[in-house]
Structure formats: C-alpha cells, structure tokens
Simulated scan of single mutants.
Amino acid sequence: MSPHTAPIVDTAHDLELAERILAPDGSRVPNPQLDRHLTDLTPQTLRDLHRDMVVLRRIDAEGVALQRQGQLGLWAPCQGQEAAQIGTARALAPQDFVFPSYRETGVMYVRGAQPGDYVRMWRGEEGAAYDPAALRMAPLQIIIGAQTLHAAGYALGIRNEGIDEVAVAYFGDGATSQGDVNEAMIFASSYRAPVVFVCQNNHWAISEPVGLQSQYPLAGRAPGFGIPSLRVDGNDVLACLAAMRWALEHARSGKGPAYLEAVTYRMGPHTTADDPKRYRDDAELEAWRRRDPITRLEAHLRAAGQLDEAHLAAVQEAADAAAREMRAACLGMTTRPPLAVFDGVYAEPHSGLARQREQYRAYLDTFAEA
C-alpha cells in the first residue's frame, strides 16, 4: 500500500504500514517497490552496513560518556536510529550535499568525519564541527528545521547550474511542525529543485509524542505539496538504503524533490540535558528494543550463514578504535582563552569592542574570586 495514504495515528504499532525489506526477526520480506533498488547487494555489502551501525553506536556511546565526564557541554544521542542514518547516507553520491540537524552523527561518519569532528562543536571549541567542503555537509543546525530552507535554496542553485548533485535535508518529526520545513517544501516543489527531504520520525520531539503533532503519518504531508513520498521502516537498514536510492534517482533525474519518512525510535534522551523517564513509558521503550536495527541485520546475516566470529571481532575492534580516537581527539583539544572571542571580529580595534572586552574580563574575574 502507498505509505502516505494510511489514515492512522503514528504509534509504535503502526510499523506494518511502513515499507520494509527485513522483518524485525531478520527474515527477508518481498517488496517489489524497493527490491529493484537492491539488485547489487552482496554479503560483503551487508557486513559493511552492519559494521557501520556498530561503529556508529560505539561513537554515540562515547559521546554520551564524554559529556557525563564533563568533557562536552552537550551530546545529542542517536541510539536506535543507526539504520535510518547509515542506510540513507550510504546511498548518497560523493558530490551530493547534506544539510543535517544536530543528531546526524551517522551521516557525518559515512561522509568521512575525522575523530575530532564529532566533538568539536559540542565542546565549544573554535571553528565548526568539521570542514563542510571536505564532508560535503553543512554545519550542524540547532535551529529546528532551518536546514530545509538551506537545502532547497542550494538545490535551486544545482538546478540553475545544471550540475549532477542532489541536496539532502535531514530533520526530525518535531521539525515537521515548523513553518521552515513547510515553506521549504513549497519552494522546492514550485521550482522542481533536486532536494530529498529525510524525516527521521523517532516518535519524540523532546517530550512531545509524534501522535500529538499529527494524527496521520508524516509522509502524507509531502504529496500535499506535490512531492512524492515513501514511508519506510527506519530500523531496516536495507529499506532505508533502497528508499533513499529511489528518492535520489527521482531528484537527480529532474523530477523535483522527494520525501522520506523513516519510522524509527530514539532509545536515549533527546540530548544529555533531557530525562526521558519523566515522559516516556518503559513498556514502549522495551517494545522498540525488540526492533533494534543492529540485531535485525545480524539475525539476517546469521540465517544466511554470512556472520562469523571473525567478522564480529573485527567490527568490535573497529568500534573500539573509533571511540579511542574520538576520546583522544577530544581530550587533546586546546581551548582558546575566553577573551580571544573578541579577536578578529573587526579588521581594526574600536572603543565599543574594547568596552565589551573589559566588561567580559570583569565578569570572568568573578569566577576566579569565587
């Protein structure tokens, strides 16, 4: 059935309405709509996707640990969303340009992020989290939904220049209630801009459940703007890979924007400043643990005889190495002196800036006195 036509409240039980390739037990589900986008799959491809998700989960856990230990000011966990991020990002072409929110650690990983790139912004160090030109990925966006406008505008530039690129905007279910997202879809549809909108519906906009925001699947909003959409099981990495290939093919061929809703679940807090136990039921959390994206692919590989101990050991070694390198990069960063924030603001010094600098210095001195 077309995922954008199902009139039902989006709960943990409506995943049957989402397109999938792998069932929660790892068995293969025939899907004529998506199977044609996976004809090149090999056992090694599946093992690589498994490795990616395991490494991502380890990086994410290290980010939480670093924040709890006082090394980061904040961290936005993505546990549970590994398939949605790895699957869609692995479908991208090198020249495509990504506009993320603040939770796309997995997309950063796929695009070639270096160990320090994951933590630089959350530590509050100088510069962006990474080099946007190197990763073909805009800086992490904290303003909810703003990146969709940036992606639509960039995509219009792609169209005007006639180059082989697609802009991709990632956002959460909460962002779909923002005007920016809806305005971006109007703009992209009107000008047939080559942009893919990827909504990771993780069921919670901080403490607000998605069912409170929308009584219908979020993928159903896009057709109202003239944008074709697919609703996929966001914990099925193969469905996410295939759906993203469909969306990119659509956008790259000049047909205009496409929209994906990846139905997944945020297993941890919204950020490390959040306590999900205050608003989330433990039974719901446990129900989604049984849909874990990593164990699902592992079950599929085991059934096919393609998962051995050597692979698992190599994957664990790669995950631990990534975490060690990330921690070392974080602890090795040199923080600029606080007053250096005023350096380079203007080409020439002036009295207004000098006054602000002195006021800030006096403020910092109060901490030393305490």
Rank of each mutant, 00 (worst) to 15 (best):
S2T: 10
H4T: 10
A6I: 15
V9W: 10
H13R: 08
P30N: 02
D35A: 13
D40P: 12
T42C: 13
P43W: 00
V54Y: 07
R58I: 01
I59C: 01
A61P: 01
L66I: 04
R68S: 11
G70N: 09
L72M: 04
G73V: 05
Q85F: 11
Q85L: 06
R90H: 15
Q95T: 13
F97G: 05
R120P: 04
A129K: 03
A146R: 09
L156A: 11
N160P: 00
N160Y: 07
E161K: 14
E165F: 00
A167G: 08
Y170Q: 03
Y170A: 00
F171T: 03
T176H: 05
S177W: 06
D180A: 12
N182S: 14
E183M: 13
I186M: 15
A188G: 14
A188P: 12
S189Y: 02
Y191A: 08
V195H: 12
V195Q: 12
V198N: 07
N201W: 02
W204H: 10
S207C: 07
A222F: 00
G224Q: 03
F225A: 01
I227K: 01
R231K: 01
D233C: 11
D236I: 05
D236P: 11
M244G: 01
W246N: 04
A251R: 00
K255N: 14
A258Q: 10
E261F: 02
A262H: 13
M267V: 12
P269M: 10
T271P: 10
P276I: 06
R290C: 04
D292Y: 06
R296H: 05
L297R: 04
L301V: 05
R302P: 00
A303T: 07
A303Y: 03
A304V: 08
D308L: 10
H311T: 15
A321Q: 15
A321K: 15
A323D: 01
R327N: 03
P338T: 09
P338N: 09
L339A: 03
V345A: 06
A347G: 15
E348P: 05
L353S: 14
L353C: 12
A354K: 11
D365R: 07
T366K: 12
F367I: 09
